[in-house]
Structure formats: C-alpha cells, structure tokens
Amino acid sequence: MSAFTLLGFGPGGWGGALLVAAGTTLGLALCGFLLGAVLGGLAASAKLSGLLPLRALAEGYTTLLRGVPDLLVIYLMYFGGSAALGVVGGWFGAEGFIGVPAFGVGVVALGVISGAYQAEVFRGAYLALDRGQIEAARAVGMHRGLILRRVVAPLVARDALPGLGNVWQILLKDSALVSVTGLVELLRQAQVGAGSTRQPFTFYLAAGALYLAITSLSTWGFSRAEAHARRGIR
C-alpha cells in the first residue's frame, strides 16, 4: 500500500483518524491554555500583591513548574490523580484502582504547566503598563473595578499577546506528551497507525506535518492578532 492510500481518506486509509486526532490535540491544547490563563492570572496577581505568603506561594509555583520536566508533571497528574481518586473512592466504599479520564488529566497537567509560564507573561505585561493611564482613569472618577476592566485588562492583554503566542506554541508541542497516558491525540493515533501497519516513518512524518501545519497557522493567527491589537500605536 502506498503512503498516499495509507494516509488517505478511502477504505483502509488513516487520514480521517489522524485529522480527528489532530482535533483532539487542538482541543486539549486549547482547554489547557484557558486553564493556564486562569492559573497564570491568579499567580501573576498573587506575585504583584503585597501579601508575602501569597507572593511566596506563587513564586514557588512558577519556579517549580518551570524547572521540572513537563513529562514528570504529566506522570504526577496521571498516577497521582488516580491514587487521589482511589482514596476519595475509598471513603465512598469503592475499591481498587480508579482510572482518571485521560483528557482531563491532560488538560489539568497542561494548564498547570502553562499557567506557570503565563504568570510571568502577565506579570511582565502589567509591569510595562503606563502608570499615567491608571492615574488618568482615576482622575475621571473611575472606581477600581472599572479601571481594571476598561484600562488595565485591555492594555495588559495587548502587551501580553506576543508572550502568550510563545506559550501557546510550547503548549501545543507539549500536548504530544499527553500521549503517554494513552489519550488518543495526534501522536498517539500515529503510534497506533504505525503499530498496525508497520510503517512508523510514514505515520510519524504525517503527524509531524500536521503539527507543523497547526504551529504555522498559529504563528500566522497570532501575528494577525498582534497587528490588530496594536492598530492604535504607530
């Protein structure tokens, strides 16, 4: 069977399965990115707050998660998650091993990892904020919540965009690591195809090409978004 029929969409072709798996990869990365944005935002505000314990906690979180291999974090979530579920299940009388949903594990792991990186991006963008903007907002009588919503959030989002683009690219490639939990995302699907057809090179090359397509599209999308966000600045 030639590589084209093998990777095509006809009978015996793996094209459809690979595309669906690429969708799973995208969904996984997107959910992880959103969770990471929440965690990153919280960690950044903790770091910027005056409260020492909060600051120390956030500092520990970002240092640890940025210094430890992502694969190790995924193993922790995967095995630790089922162990924790087993304990909780034990309280309710369940016995034995409880498997955790692999997609959920992947999202939590990617979210926790990318949150540490996003925290630094948000913090940097907040520190780059022009104080005069906030003073001006206060001078026209805006209260804190309104300043946050109308002045701080849009400006921070604009300055954070390039950094967030980098985090997204890293996250997209990290999502391949979730394949170790058995979740059928792009790399795992390629593994399955490689195993059953004994053509590993063809399948990994196809997976690589799909990843390349996704990252290239992301690069293009982020540069468009950056141009749009900076349209008011010359």
Partner: peptide
C-alpha cells in the same frame, strides 16, 4: 529551523528511533 521548531520533540524522537526502523 522551521521544521524542528515547529514539531514536538517527542515526534522527532519517535521518527528517528521507531521511524527509521522502516528503512
């Protein structure tokens, strides 16, 4: 640079270790 920065390292490792077995 484009290819190796645009694809996950794990894919590259599998491509070299398992993939080259095809040849």
């Amino acid at each position: 640079i484009f290819v190796f920065r645009g694809t996950p390292l794990l894919v590259q490792i599998f491509l070299i270790y398992y993939g080259l077995g095809q040849f």
